[in-house]
Design a protein around this nucleic acid. Structure first.
Ligand SMILES: NC(=O)c1ccc[n+]([C@@H]2O[C@H](COP(=O)([O-])OP(=O)(O)OC[C@H]3O[C@@H](n4cnc5c(N)ncnc54)[C@H](O)[C@@H]3O)[C@@H](O)[C@H]2O)c1
Ligand SMILES: NC(=O)c1ccc[n+]([C@@H]2O[C@H](COP(=O)([O-])OP(=O)(O)OC[C@H]3O[C@@H](n4cnc5c(N)ncnc54)[C@H](O)[C@@H]3O)[C@@H](O)[C@H]2O)c1
Lengths: 209, 209
DNA sequence: CAAAAATCGTGAGTAAATTCACAAAGTTAG
DNA sequence: CTAACTTTGTGAATTTACTCACGATTTTTG
């Protein structure tokens, strides 16, 4: 569909990382950067970086490297940094509160605009400038947000997911351990912190470096 | 070194996920499970599950599936669930507080035993049963913890990392946007929440399902 | 200006991971 | 006990990702 649709997924996942770093260079007034420097900074092999960039055409110059300003404006366009993606957060508990307090807007095109919780005490408050609505009002108060962050207890995850999808949400960042079921046109990224910690421990024991 | 060292990394990362789900089945009293059922539950292709399990030998029975009790005890051993990995957390802010309040011990062999912060107000308090020490006392109070969770501001990340490594830490779960530099025998897992959110937004726009 | 140095972009090779698809072996039902 | 059914384990094919290594081109130095 998109003409860029042939970009490998592994590359696509690295783009925001590149963007953030290049933007920092830009703000620091740096004029040029080589794939080797980028590699040291973001810990991705320099050949991989050149390959990643090459999917978008010849962004660099041989013997010189990449022009920071050119790169940054290219990535801004490519990552739609000018167009903010509005996000809803469901479950204002420990994790949800942390996310609301965090400013996802730094170098970032995403913004949490509304939060929901089942606890009546919290409803009506604001956390990090985001109003908290009651979960029963999800359908009325969600607007046409297309991305949701799920930080509810795992038992509630599937039910809420179904309602979110009913409202047209097409991307979910799921922090609950539940592996939710969604139609094939909805994308879910699972971030399973317990699994991350356990698998790190497993790697340490079984894959000594 | 290990005889299991040839297990693909992608497989190793899924093991804790399998374990958690199988353990739940076990607690529910379920006797048997097929790769198809597991697949529906954890959203991993059933052939991938069978392949993953097969690295550990023939755990199942043709025409029957897998015996839950057998699986659960096998994974418990394999994932060293009997031996708790002690973890330190550095930076008791929004995110750090959420992790301390969370009980990583459910189905889990990891435990945060100590936390550090630079803010004197917090030192001496407990959060989620974990004592908070001052970062200046890191070297004295860390014990021989081998894994650390980094939830400090990104500017502090590299300096703290160096000190952690000086104390023998060999695994770091890094939630800061900084890509830290470590010796080659230290393993770092980056969890970059802004990148996750941005790349989800990117996928939605450029890879319509 | 010429030689040396830097660095990109990419063809080709390698490695890792996933998926297909089916024989083999077991289970279940009657 | 037999036939129909289920489900594993895996060889082979495929897909995806990474890395090497080098020619081409530009910059830098003296
Ligand atoms: N906190 C962590 O460090 C951590 C780590 C790993 C996984 N998780 C997972 O993240 C999720 C949230 O964790 P947490 O520690 O923030 O939990 P929490 O209990 O602090 O927060 C959950 C929030 O969801 C709200 N809630 C409950 N049911 C709801 C519903 N039906 N609709 C809307 N809101 C509802 C609760 O009122 C509460 O505010 C859990 O699934 C947990 O397993 C958390
Ligand atoms: N909160 C989020 O949702 C979120 C999302 C993405 C990334 N992050 C990253 O996670 C990290 C923590 O985020 P946060 O929101 O919890 O920040 P925070 O400011 O709430 O917490 C940081 C904590 O670290 C402590 N600290 C500062 N310097 C220290 C030092 N040298 N040694 C020890 N402790 C020190 C501070 O006192 C504070 O308690 C940041 O790097 C942030 O970029 C957070």
């Amino acid at each position: 569909m998109d003409e860029e649709a042939k970009i490998p997924q592994a590359t696509a996942k690295r783009l925001p990382l590149y963007y953030r770093f290049i933007n920092n260079l830009y703000l620091q007034g740096k004029m040029r950067v080589s794939s080797k420097e980028l590699s040291d900074a973001v810990k991705v092999d320099s050949a991989t970086i050149r390959r990643d960039f090459s999917y978008f055409g010849a962004l660099g110059k041989k013997g010189y490297g990449y022009n920071v300003e050119h790169l940054v404006s290219f990535f801004r366009k490519t990552l739609d940094q000018d167009e903010t993606t509005e996000v809803a957060l469901i479950g204002v508990g420990n994790l949800g509160t942390a996310f609301l307090n965090y400013n996802f807007m730094k170098n970032n095109n995403t913004k949490i605009v509304v939060a929901f919780d089942a606890d009546k005490e919290r409803v009506g408050q604001e956390v990090g400038g985001v109003p908290i609505e009651h979960i029963d009002d999800l359908e009325e108060r969600m607007g046409n947000v297309s991305v949701a962050i799920l930080t509810v207890p795992s038992q509630a995850a599937q039910g809420i997911t179904d309602r979110l999808i009913g409202q047209g949400v097409s991307g979910i960042l799921n922090f609950t351990p539940a592996r939710i079921t969604v139609p094939s046109d909805v994308r879910v990224h699972h971030i399973d912190l317990s699994v991350e910690l356990q698998s790190l421990a497993y790697f340490l024991k079984h894959y000594p470096l």
